[in-house]
Design a protein around this nucleic acid. Structure first.
Lengths: 107, 107
DNA sequence: CATGTTCTATAGAATCTCTATACGAGGTTA
DNA sequence: TAACCTCGTATAGAGATTCTATAGAACATG
């Protein structure tokens, strides 16, 4: 099933997604499924609280617009602190990833 | 600082550590720091609840023994279901790790 | 015996993510 | 216009994990 995220990876995925392109909420969710090849499927109940939290933190900013399907949609964009946060969390992920690989290989 | 884990990785690290060697609580913690090259430093307040939870789940079993320093210490050992769990969680980690790498590389 | 170290343990708070549900707006079809 | 579906946002409530802080017992050492 693998639909569940590791706690802490959601923010990084959202930051990365928005670094590539401004998107509205559900658009972010679709894009995450795409760039992780379906491994992560972010549900609305996880996504929106995360977006609000991250906007609160100043990493994102939002504006109302219109979606491809002519619906009212809130678009999100990375701020400058958001880009810095992306860099920080990417580094941290690399460190963790290397450490885990090293641990799992040990005999 | 990097002392904080991603939620969900602690169980895997404990399982892996005990697959190599039976150890008591603090011994596990030291060994995790070792095999992750200091990246993860598991504090008692995280470790003991995790050990109790995992024993409850049947992945570990424990017995009282004596530590290298002549202290009363509770040793933990992997059960058969524990080994299966280690395999499962290792696979899951690989999948997640690959998906994240793919996401972080996308442009 | 006073102090420090080792080892286990718990309470309480904080943080995330999930399930489930709701609601509004636009489009489609009968 | 009614019924219905889809898109998009939103929140409540639950569940799980980890952290900080604290405690206490046992042993060692000066």
């Amino acid at each position: 099933m693998a639909t569940n995220l590791l706690q802490g990876t959601l923010d990084l995925l959202i930051l990365k997604t928005l670094a590539l392109q401004e998107l509205h909420g559900l658009g972010i969710s679709h894009r995450i499924a795409q760039i992780t090849q379906g491994t992560f499927q972010v549900k609305p109940g996880s996504l929106f609280p995360a977006l609000h939290r991250m906007e609160e933190s100043g990493w994102l900013e939002s504006y109302w617009g219109e979606s491809e399907n002519n619906r009212r949609a809130k678009y999100y964009r990375l701020t400058v602190p958001g880009r810095a946060q992306l860099a920080t969390e990417t580094d941290e992920w690399q460190r963790i990833s290397i450490a885990m690989a090293s641990a799992l290989e040990s005999t």
